[in-house]
Design a protein around this nucleic acid. Structure first.
Length: 280
DNA sequence: AAGTCACGCAACCGCTCCCCT
DNA sequence: GAGGGGAGCGGTTGCGTGACT
């Protein structure tokens, strides 16, 4: 399909935004919203492309933007989320109210990357993590991990999203499309090799969890964040183990996986919380 | 004081995804 | 099902600024 030229049309301005342009954009969006970024600059009287307007609004002009330095807590959250999600800045930003993906990306590239490089031991590379956890996966019956960097993802994501949606629609008919979308966006399958009836090895999602359907445990299938590093650290694996042993709990939304991955930084506490919630 | 370097951030580019026809 | 078009995302660039020589 042909790509629409952007910012290449004659007369469209590039570079830093002026206060006047900001004012016009803010004023227009306050009055009309931003349903169509492409048409917006023309209607607002801006000599910018829609992309540029969108970026400016999202990264700078939005009223809920939190400016200033990242707090220690935010920093830790970013590190934990990056460990789980990789360079999925928008997904990380979704967990940090007021922060934009661009801001987080810049912060990571300029501060955290360097910082973590200096503290290698605290941030094991995926390779080392994989080595560390192979035994764990083996012990819970996972004999094949998704390829890094998830070569199969693109092939599976689409069908998976449909699967999740249909499953959620069945089990949560009241679920809003947005929540389904959010859930599917955050998930991808943990591919687990399981023998089928013919004894062939097929890649299927884990079926060892109870059939209680939730957004995260759809039809008894384990879902992991899309594009997540393909392995978990040992402590996170403990949480997974805990979950699998307490599969009758009512993890009804993404909070579970948020706890599992993000709060896994405080693993013992998370374990305790999960255990207590699963224990009658 | 002037020049150079390094860093941080805003913005752009190009690609993919998703929706609609 | 295929193709077009818009939106969103992640990588990269380039400019501004402060530190250093």
């Amino acid at each position: 399909m042909g790509r629409t030229p952007c910012c290449q049309k004659m007369g469209l301005k590039k570079g830093p935004w002026t206060p006047e342009e900001d004012r016009i954009l803010i004023s227009y969006i306050h009055q009309h919203g931003h349903h169509n970024w492409r048409a917006l600059p023309k209607q607002a009287g801006l000599l910018r492309c829609g992309k540029s307007c969108r970026l400016r609004w999202i990264n700078y002009l939005r009223p809920d933007i939190k400016r200033g330095n990242f707090t220690q807590e935010e920093e830790e959250t970013i590190i934990n989320l990056h460990r789980i999600l990789g360079n999925r800045w928008s997904a990380i930003a979704a967990r940090l109210p007021g922060r934009t993906d661009n801001e987080i990306k810049n912060f990571w590239n300029t501060h955290l990357k360097k910082k973590l490089h200096d503290q290698k031991t605290n941030y094991p590379s995926p390779t080392s993590m994989e080595t560390t956890n192979k035994h764990y996966y083996s012990s819970i019956g996972i004999s094949k991990l998704p390829n890094t960097p998830l070569d199969t993802e693109n092939q599976t994501t689409q069908s998976f999203k449909h699967m999740v949606q249909s499953q959620v629609e069945v089990s949560h008919p009241q679920a809003q499309p947005s929540s389904i979308s959010a859930a599917t966006e955050e998930m991808h399958t943990l591919v687990i090799k399981e023998e089928d009836h013919e004894g062939n090895n097929n890649n299927v999602v884990a079926s060892s969890i109870s059939s209680t359907s939730t957004k995260n445990n759809v039809g008894g299938k384990i879902l992991l964040p899309k594009k997540a590093p393909t392995v978990l650290d040992g402590s996170t694996s403990l949480l997974l183990d805990n979950f699998m042993n307490n599969n009758n709990n009512n993890n009804e939304d993404l909070e579970f996986w948020y706890n599992l991955f993000v709060k896994a930084g405080d693993n013992h506490q998370a374990c305790m919380e999960m255990h207590s919630s699963a224990t009658p």
